[in-house]
Each structure stands twice: as structure tokens, then as C-alpha cells.
Simulated assay, not measured.
Amino acid sequence: MNLRPASWPVLTSLRGYRRVWLRRDVLAGLTVAAIAIPAQMATATLAGFPVQARPHPH
């Protein structure tokens, strides 16, 4: 596993990131979470699984 920062693609992407985008990006992330989390909880309920208030371990 290569742990050198030069090998992390996210760092290359962040070089062109503008600070003025941050507010809208955070709002977009919160919006997606507000929709996705209840949807996944509903899917679990329909499938007969218990709804848990913790992240699923990968």
C-alpha cells in the first residue's frame, strides 16, 4: 500500500477546488443524507430487517 500523498487522487482533485463551492457542496451532502438515510431505513423495514441507528460495517 502506497501511503505517499502524491499517490492520492483526491489531493490532485482538491488543488482545483474553490472555497466558494464549499457551502453549496455541504448543503448538497446534507440533502442527499436527508433523503438517503430514511430511504434505506424504509427499505430495511420492507425487507424485514431491523432498523438500526448505526453505520453498517463493511
Rank of each mutant, 00 (worst) to 15 (best):
M1H: 10
N2M: 01
L3W: 06
R4P: 00
R4V: 05
S7C: 06
S7V: 02
W8A: 06
W8D: 15
V10E: 09
V10Q: 09
L11E: 01
L11W: 07
L14E: 02
R15A: 10
R18E: 08
R18M: 03
R19I: 08
W21K: 02
L22W: 11
L22P: 01
R23D: 10
R23M: 06
V26H: 01
V26I: 14
L27H: 07
A28H: 08
L30F: 11
T31H: 10
T31R: 15
V32Q: 08
V32W: 10
V32K: 06
V32R: 13
A33Q: 09
A33Y: 08
A34M: 05
I35M: 05
A36Y: 08
P38W: 07
Q40L: 15
A42P: 00
A42R: 08
T43K: 08
A44Q: 13
A44L: 15
T45K: 13
T45I: 02
T45N: 08
A47H: 02
G48S: 06
G48L: 05
F49D: 14
F49N: 13
F49L: 15
F49K: 14
P50Y: 01
V51H: 01
V51I: 04
V51M: 01
V51G: 00
A53I: 07
A53G: 05
R54F: 04
P55E: 04
P55G: 04
P55I: 08
H56M: 11
H56Y: 10
H56R: 15
H56S: 12
H56N: 12
P57E: 01
H58I: 05
H58F: 10
H58R: 15
